[in-house]
């Protein structure tokens, strides 16, 4: 596969991932994941040893499923009022690519319509993707959200 073809496929995949979250297609979103994959929102942006640090979110397969249930089942008062979101992504850069794994970093912004107004959560997001026959599975997604190392507001969404 040429560099351009890889870039196009990666870009399409990243757009798909964001689109599924914006449109609350959570089952399809869960299907994008490698079972051993980790979804991480670290507190400190320079951390790489996530397991041995406190994170804002550190979701393995089980926690991802529980989080999706929480976002969907109407039991959580903070998610019931959560309206639509818009995720934009750009500045996509492939950092490393092999037949087994592709590491890609992008600029990412989640806009949420909260009762207090529209809030923006800009982030640097890094994916480690595992190529499949016609797409990818997510091995790791790390969202380094601006201000996570200072103070956030509460968040009713996935980054």
């Amino acid at each position: 596969m040429s560099e351009n073809q890889l870039y196009t496929r990666v870009s399409e995949f990243l757009s798909l991932e964001a689109d599924l979250l914006d449109h609350k297609a959570y089952d399809e979103w869960l299907a994008l994941w490698e079972k051993s994959g980790l979804y991480i929102v670290p507190v400190e942006h320079d951390v790489t040893d996530f397991a041995n640090h406190l994170n804002v979110a550190y979701d393995d397969d089980e926690m991802r499923q529980l989080r999706i249930a929480r976002l969907s089942n109407g039991e959580a008062v903070s998610t019931v009022g959560a309206e639509n979101t818009v995720r934009t992504l750009s500045r996509i850069r492939i950092l490393e690519a092999s037949d087994e794994l592709v590491t890609v970093r992008c600029a990412y912004c989640l806009y949420e319509n909260n009762k207090n107004g529209v809030r923006a959560f800009p982030a640097n997001v890094e994916f480690i993707l595992k190529p499949t026959e016609d797409s990818f599975l997510i091995q790791q997604k790390v969202a380094r959200v601006m201000k996570s190392n200072e103070h956030l507001t509460t968040v009713s969404y996935l980054f």
Binding site: V41, L54, N55, V56, A57, Y58, M63, L66, R67, R70, A76, V77, S78, T79, G81, S148, L152, T153, T154, V155, S156
Partner: peptide
């Protein structure tokens, strides 16, 4: 701690809403 507490915990955002 991550499961319940903090901005993306399963507890804190609901406390915050209340």
């Amino acid at each position: 701690h991550e499961h319940f507490q903090g901005p993306m915990g399963f507890g804190t955002p609901d406390d915050g809403e209340a």
